[in-house]
């Protein structure tokens, strides 16, 4: 596949949906290392777009560029809000600071190695996610100090939103305990709930199923599908777990060594010889090996968080 044709494919979403995020010629260099090499793709609105690829393919780096943690060496990342939802509908993410991307462009993300606020309570984690609305309501703290009615109302709303998402990820019972004391799977769900509390238009999930058992994984599928349908937001998903990816993705982009090697529907990618060669393995053997590796890496993390439990 030459660059030209990849380009033309890239700017359309396979299902024909409106493109929420358009990534064009994204390149990220770390010194001499080309971690992401001229990648272009589009992610549709109200669709789940999966980014898959072997370890070190550059998936997380794409996320970090999208969310402003890295400044891309080259390329354009444009995010187009629904025309009715904002006054400023088009954002060029590569020009924005990370916190502005979350706040103004409304891109939320989770992290491959979970990043919660561990000593704060589960509910507080969700309140921090609603920082901006609350800060404004508290008159940048001045009114809040004197217990203004407006702030109390805003706080109540924020708690209600937090409660809604806690219900959705089945963490309502644990709302008042510290986030760090939750078991691993619950921490992953909490991180998703926290991202959703920012009311994003694009939700980026970095390996949300890592370290989950099959039942939890299935629940995650349901959760993501319902978020997509009910909130009508785009979801960008990095995942090694093929049972998750193949089942819920509307669109899959495959990376290998920083380049995009395939892009299309699950059906298309599954049968794409380039993908089979590079990623799914010649035969079953290699895939098995890959799966083993993935699990091996996750296990220590999981054990650690389990042993943290009192």
């Amino acid at each position: 596949m030459n660059a030209q044709s990849a380009d033309n494919d890239a700017l359309a979403v396979p299902s024909g949906a409106r493109a929420l995020l358009t990534v064009e010629h994204l390149t990220m260099r770390f010194g001499g290392l080309l971690a992401v090499d001229d990648i272009s793709f589009a992610a549709g609105d109200a669709e789940i777009t999966a980014i898959i690829g072997p370890n070190g393919a550059g998936k997380t780096t794409v996320f970090n560029c999208l969310t402003g943690f890295y400044k891309p060496s080259e390329g354009r990342l444009s995010l187009r809000h629904d025309s009715e939802s904002g006054q400023q509908p088009l954002f060029y993410l590569e020009r924005m600071d990370d916190y502005r991307i979350a706040d103004a462009a409304r891109v939320a993300r989770t992290f491959q190695n979970i990043r919660l606020f561990p000593t704060m309570s589960v509910l507080e984690n969700l309140m921090v996610a609603q920082h901006h609305a609350l800060l404004r309501a508290s008159g940048f703290t001045l009114l809040g100090l004197f217990g203004s009615r407006r702030y109390r109302r805003a706080e109540k709303d924020a708690i209600e939103r937090a409660r809604y998402w806690l219900d959705r990820v089945q963490l309502t019972e644990q709302a008042n305990i510290s986030a760090g004391s939750l078991p691993y799977g619950a921490q992953r769900r909490l991180e998703i709930a926290r991202a959703m509390c920012t009311e994003p238009v694009l939700l980026c999930l970095d390996e949300p199923a890592a370290g989950l058992n099959p039942r939890e994984s299935a629940e995650l599928n349901q959760l993501l599908l319902r978020i997509k349908e009910e909130q009508e937001i785009g979801i960008l998903l990095i995942e090694h777990d093929m049972s998750v990816v193949m089942e819920i993705s509307d669109h899959i982009a495959v990376l290998d060594y920083g380049r995009k090697i395939s892009d299309g529907t699950a059906e298309f990618v599954r049968n794409d010889p380039a993908v089979i060669r590079a990623y799914l393995g010649e035969e079953d053997e290699e895939q098995e090996e890959k799966g083993e590796q993935g699990r091996e890496q996750e296990r220590p993390e999981q054990e650690q968080s389990e042993s943290n439990r009192p």
């Binding site: 943690f69 979350a102 309140m127 920082h131 901006h132 940048f140 100090l145």
Partner: peptide, 22 residues
Amino acid sequence: LPLGRAWEALREDEVACRSLGI
């Protein structure tokens, strides 16, 4: 208040704070 919570969140994880728009 949100400011105080943001301080504590910053102490816990600055990267996560940025990802939440703080």
